[in-house]
C-alpha cells in the first residue's frame, strides 16, 4: 500500500466516523448509502482527482461533482466540512434548527452543485454541464455519482444515450453498485445485470472496480483527465451498502436510517476495528 492509499484509508476511517456520529446525533440520514459510496468521494476529493477550492467554491475552472444519489449527502457534507468549505461545527447542526443542511442534497451549501433527492435527474444536469463546458472550451471534468438503484429511472438511460451520442468524454460517471435498494437486492427486484453490457451497448467505455479499493479507484479515474477515449466513461464501483459497519451490511431495511442506542455504539466500534490497521 503506497502512502497515498494509506492516507486515503485513514481519511476513510475519519470521514466515516464523523459522518456516522453526525447521523446518530441527528437521528437521521442514509448511513448505509453513504458508507457504500464514501470511498469514491474520498478518492475524488483527496486523491488528487477532483479540482476544487474550498476558499472559492464558485471557482469557474473547478471540476463539477454531481451527487445524483442525493441521499448520500451526509458523506459529501462531512467531506466538504473537512476540506474547509464551511466550519465543521455545521455538522453538529445536521437536521437541527439553524442548521444549513439535512437529509437530501441542497445546492446552496458551499461546494455543492445541485439539489438532489428526486433520483435520476442530477445525471442529466451533469451531461448538460459537460456539453456546456465543451461549447465554452472549458477543460474541467464533470463527475457524476449515481446509485445503482437510481439506474431504474428511465431518465438515466435517456441521458446515457445522449452523453454517448455527443461523445461527452469530459463526463465521468461512477455508479455505486451496492446491489441494494430500499426493500430488496437489485437482482431480486428487477435485475440490473448484465449491467456492464447495458452501459457498453449505450456507447460507454466501461470499467468495473472494487469501490472500496483506493488503488483500483485511482487507477481507473486518474487517466480520464487525459480523455483517453472519445467515449464517455462509466466506472462501475462494486461496493457494500454499509461498508465499515458490519451490523448494517446486507440488510435492505437499514436504508434511510441512522442507528441508535446499542446498535450505534456497536457500529462505531466496528468502524474502529475495521480500520485499526491504518
Amino acid at each position: 500500500m503506497d502512502s497515498l492509499t494509506k492516507e486515503l484509508e485513514r481519511k476513510s476511517h475519519h470521514i466515516r466516523k464523523a459522518m456516522l456520529q453526525m447521523c446518530i446525533d441527528a437521528g437521521k440520514g442514509h448511513v448505509t448509502s453513504c458508507f457504500s459510496c464514501v470511498d469514491i468521494l474520498i478518492a475524488l476529493y483527496y486523491g488528487n482527482l477532483l479540482r476544487c477550492d474550498p476558499q472559492n467554491p464558485e471557482w469557474p475552472e473547478r471540476d463539477r461533482f454531481i451527487l445524483s444519489k442525493g441521499q448520500a449527502s451526509p458523506a459529501l457534507y462531512t467531506i466538504l466540512a473537512d476540506l474547509g468549505f464551511y466550519d465543521k461545527s455545521e455538522l453538529k447542526k445536521f437536521n437541527k434548527p439553524g442548521g444549513m443542511f439535512a437529509v437530501h442534497l441542497q445546492k446552496d451549501v458551499p461546494g455543492v452543485e445541485i439539489t438532489a433527492g428526486s433520483l435520476g435527474q442530477g445525471y442529466g444536469v451533469a451531461a448538460g454541464i459537460a456539453l456546456g463546458a465543451r461549447m465554452n472550451m472549458e477543460l474541467y471534468n464533470v463527475y457524476a455519482l449515481l446509485g445503482d438503484g437510481e439506474c431504474y429511472e428511465g431518465s438515466i438511460w435517456e441521458t446515457a444515450m445522449f452523453a454517448a451520442h455527443n461523445r461527452l468524454n469530459n463526463l465521468i460517471t461512477v455508479v455505486d453498485r451496492n446491489y441494494l435498494c430500499v426493500t430488496d437486492f437489485t437482482e431480486n427486484l428487477v435485475a440490473l445485470e448484465p449491467f456492464e453490457d447495458k452501459w457498453r451497448s449505450f456507447g460507454f467505455n466501461v470499467l468495473r472496480v472494487d469501490g472500496h479499493s483506493f488503488e483500483q479507484l485511482l487507477r481507473a479515474l486518474e487517466p480520464l483527465r487525459s480523455r483517453t477515449s472519445d467515449k464517455p466513461t462509466v466506472v462501475i464501483a462494486e461496493t457494500v451498502k454499509g461498508q465499515g459497519a458490519e451490523s448494517l451490511c446486507h440488510q435492505p431495511l437499514w436504508h434511510g436510517r441512522a442507528p441508535s442506542g446499542q446498535v450505534a455504539d456497536r457500529c462505531l466500534a466496528e468502524l474502529d476495528r475495521r480500520y485499526q490497521h491504518v
Partner: peptide, 18 residues
C-alpha cells in the same frame, strides 16, 4: 435530444449552469 422531453429539460438546465 431526440424524443426525450424530460432529458431536454435537464440537459437545458445543465447548459444554463454553464
Amino acid at each position: 435530444v431526440g424524443i426525450a422531453e424530460q432529458n431536454a429539460i435537464v440537459i437545458a438546465s445543465g447548459l444554463a449552469l454553464t
